[in-house]
Simulated scan of single mutants.
Amino acid sequence: MYFAWEYKMRIIPSANKVLPSNIAIPYCALSEKLGLPPILLYADCVLANWKKIDPKGPMSYENMDVLFSFPGGDCTKAFFLTSLLVEIEAAKAIKNIPSMYKALEDKDQHALQEALLHIISCLHNAKEEFEKIRGRLDPDQFFNVLRIYLSGWKGNPQLPDGLLYEGVSDKPEMFAGGSAAQSSIFQCFDVLLGIKQSAGEPSAAAFLQEMRTYMPPAHQKFLQSLESGLSVREFVLSKNVDSLTKAYNESVQAMVSLRNYHLEIVTSYILNPANRQSKKTAPSKETSEVEAKGTGGTNVMNFLKNVRGTTEEALLKVD
């Protein structure tokens, strides 16, 4: 299997950094047909990796399971299904987007305020679902087992030149691993609320734009369509009505709260296990670099702090 080979390649330094042609050729052909890069993506392991145990039952953690898993027992289910359930709660706000744009067209501040209140509720529910991960997922098992499969070829010191897809390309390719930054739902709210991540560190903004190319094509087009729409933020600023500004700020603050919690989870599931591991062994420079990076290839704490900071900057001042 591809994933078994991938795991072997990562833990054995002398392993050949080439994806054999009998895997690479069909894998790349299928990926091209889907409009996705040939690497394990968030869309693969979260958005398309679930089933109901009882088909007539609810979309709940207890009534769901993953379609494919990695070593580590229930670690795969805990991480991927919790991520999916967070997506489901946040995505419930999407149905309000048409009414938001209609409110902007009609200059109906009451309708826009109601839509913003619905977004706040959905984001709060998403955070509550996110918080359940602590009771489901063991930090050390995630760090030492599952995280290995999610790392990519880009920004990985163990693969400084990338991975050669034999029979497809004459030179190694650089692809980022599966990352929550490949989720379209939170980029959707950034666009909708006028949170300009490009106002922050250029590398963070560039990374978010790059991660769009790892999303399903329909998701990319959806974000592009939102960017060409009317501005919620500009409308709120133009009205300067306390209740509307309050609803807007609470929507932005709900995003800040989610990103704060994401930072807490990264500390618990990446930094703390890495520190515990380093106390047992003398880590090499290469190992330290890998531990500091997220599965997308960035310095995960710097990236998340930057994104949180630009989200906080979107809060409007109230007279």
Score class of each variant (00 low, 15 high):
residue 133 I to D: 07
residue 167 G to Q: 08
residue 144 N to C: 04
residue 146 L to M: 03
residue 104 L to K: 08
residue 104 L to G: 12
residue 115 A to R: 05
residue 153 W to P: 03
residue 115 A to C: 10
residue 123 L to V: 04
residue 156 N to T: 12
residue 135 G to M: 06
residue 144 N to T: 15
residue 133 I to M: 14
residue 114 E to T: 10
residue 168 V to C: 06
residue 118 H to Y: 15
residue 133 I to W: 11
residue 105 E to N: 12
residue 119 I to A: 14
residue 150 L to S: 04
residue 168 V to Y: 11
residue 106 D to Q: 10
residue 163 L to Y: 07
residue 134 R to F: 14
residue 162 G to H: 10
residue 166 E to S: 09
residue 163 L to P: 05
residue 130 F to W: 08
residue 131 E to R: 15
residue 122 C to V: 05
residue 160 P to F: 00
residue 103 A to F: 03
residue 133 I to N: 04
residue 115 A to M: 04
residue 127 K to T: 14
residue 147 R to L: 09
residue 144 N to K: 09
residue 107 K to N: 13
residue 114 E to W: 15
residue 160 P to C: 01
residue 106 D to Y: 02
residue 136 R to V: 07
residue 107 K to P: 06
residue 163 L to E: 02
residue 148 I to T: 01
residue 105 E to I: 08
residue 162 G to S: 00
residue 112 L to Y: 07
residue 142 F to D: 02
residue 154 K to S: 07
residue 115 A to I: 01
residue 151 S to I: 11
residue 167 G to A: 11
residue 103 A to T: 02
residue 146 L to D: 07
residue 134 R to M: 09
residue 141 Q to D: 13
residue 163 L to V: 12
residue 148 I to E: 06
residue 128 E to Q: 02
residue 165 Y to L: 11
residue 133 I to T: 13
residue 110 H to V: 14
residue 130 F to D: 08
residue 126 A to N: 03
residue 137 L to I: 05
residue 104 L to R: 01
residue 163 L to A: 09
residue 117 L to T: 10
residue 126 A to D: 03
residue 139 P to V: 00
residue 168 V to H: 06
residue 149 Y to I: 03
residue 125 N to R: 12
residue 130 F to Y: 09
residue 148 I to Y: 01
residue 122 C to M: 11
residue 140 D to F: 11
residue 133 I to E: 04
residue 158 Q to D: 12
residue 124 H to K: 15
residue 131 E to D: 14
residue 116 L to D: 10
residue 137 L to H: 00
residue 128 E to R: 08
residue 145 V to W: 09
residue 147 R to E: 01
residue 148 I to W: 00
residue 162 G to V: 02
residue 110 H to W: 15
residue 129 E to Y: 03
residue 137 L to G: 02
residue 157 P to E: 11
residue 110 H to Q: 13
residue 144 N to M: 12
residue 119 I to Q: 11
residue 144 N to Q: 14
residue 119 I to P: 04
residue 111 A to H: 11
residue 131 E to I: 11
residue 134 R to K: 12
residue 151 S to Q: 12
residue 105 E to H: 03
residue 136 R to S: 01
residue 165 Y to P: 02
residue 117 L to P: 12
residue 121 S to K: 14
residue 119 I to R: 09
residue 158 Q to A: 10
residue 130 F to K: 08
residue 136 R to H: 04
residue 149 Y to L: 03
residue 123 L to S: 00
residue 136 R to G: 05
residue 147 R to D: 02
residue 154 K to M: 07
